[in-house]
Amino acid sequence: MRDIFMLAAFFLLLIPVFNKPFIGVALWLWAAMFFPSAWVYGPAQLIRYNFVFSIITILGVFAYKKRAKVEANALTILITLFFIWSFITFLTGQGAPALAEYYLLNFLKIVALYYCAAAVLVKKIHVDFFIWSILLSVGFFASVEGLKVIASGGASHISGLPGHVLGDRNDLAMGINLSIPLVAYLREQYQNKILKLGLLVVMLLMAFCVLGTYSRGGLVGLLVLGILFLMESDKKILVILSLLFVVFIGNYLMPPEWFIRMETINSASEDGSFMGRVIAWKIATLIALDNPIFGAGIKGPENLTVWLPYALELNSKLTGIDTPPPDLLRGHAAHNSFFQVLGEQGFPGLILFVLIILVSFNKLNKAMRFFPKNSSNYYLAKMLKLSLIMYLVSAVALSKAYFDLSFSIYALVRFLDRQVKVNNSQTIVKSQLANI
């Protein structure tokens, strides 16, 4: 049944993908986030959806009648430098070759997605469809799982599809938290009351799914998101009612086991999982201090031959925060995107990574100052800012420096930056014409 749906949809989608690169890039992201192969069992599993959509889109970007341009700007240059630096550190690094190659290739695909999205998303409708693709992938999965959380009285432990980029429950919670503001943007674009109500229900189900992941980082992100929505929204009553709904139903639904787990947020220093992360942060810092320029390369810090010498001398080399003895049998991920980049790419990589985020915030602030408060571009900038904050909140506890959704946000920031420039030049021309 699912195979028939999937194959029919795939062949029907090829027509718009061939015609419009902006649809191609959105479906590329959709396939990356939806992971269609995990939903089907028969012949539909044989198709590499992500690969097909990406190849057609890349060809479309270069061979389209009106050839799309990847224009150089601060953000694109920084992302390019960040990728080049990750490639250089991959060459000099000590990551297990097959694993490092796999992750570098994945990062290349993410950067390619950014380039294509930055080149072809030039109109509001392009951006809207791009965000619909996130809603119909991350939003869809979260809504289905959110229903399961409600139906099971909170007993259902939600995690992503095995083998997917959002497979881990913490990664899934991050992806959902990051997508909620984008659904809120879409909700503002339509006047139809049924559609607005439907999108509000999707947002609430997404919040329940985050609760169902039992992710403590996810809950912290959700709380921060609630506060930000309350501060930023013009419709405070709706936000308060939505928050009360999630809090009361969540409080009623979730089992004691969930509350016990969430209460451990307050005693992080006694928590083994948290202290394991602190150990990984300390080791990433020591690696960067010993290799300040190149770090240990992609997946280098997790390689036992790199990890072990630092693990053996951890508390004597880096004093200040006492940690339990580290694992001497295998290296661990940094569980923090900043320490991840620091350990893998040294200080130059970290500077580039931080600059990408800072420049994105700067461009979003610029767009919010430039566009009138009732315009869709203003609201897009506001919601992208919330998404980026959600990324930062989660990035503190997860190794997600190379993440499809964060680079999709950068592509949308690039769109807004272009809109500011286009509108600015149009304003200047109009004022010059008025002076003649």
Binding site: M1, R2, F5, M6, A8, A9, L12, L13, I15, P16, V17, N19, K20, F22, I23, L27, W30, W39, K123, I125, H126, D128, F129, W132, S133, L136, F140, S143, V144
Partner: peptide
């Protein structure tokens, strides 16, 4: 139930892809 929702999601995706293609063509004509 999950398969029905899966079908609805794909149906909506296909519908929106054609809808936005039409919108883009209309904008170009104008």
């Amino acid at each position: 139930m999950e398969s029905i929702l899966f079908g609805i999601d794909l149906g909506l995706l296909v519908f929106l892809a054609y809808w936005f293609m039409k919108l883009d063509n209309n904008e170009k004509d104008n």
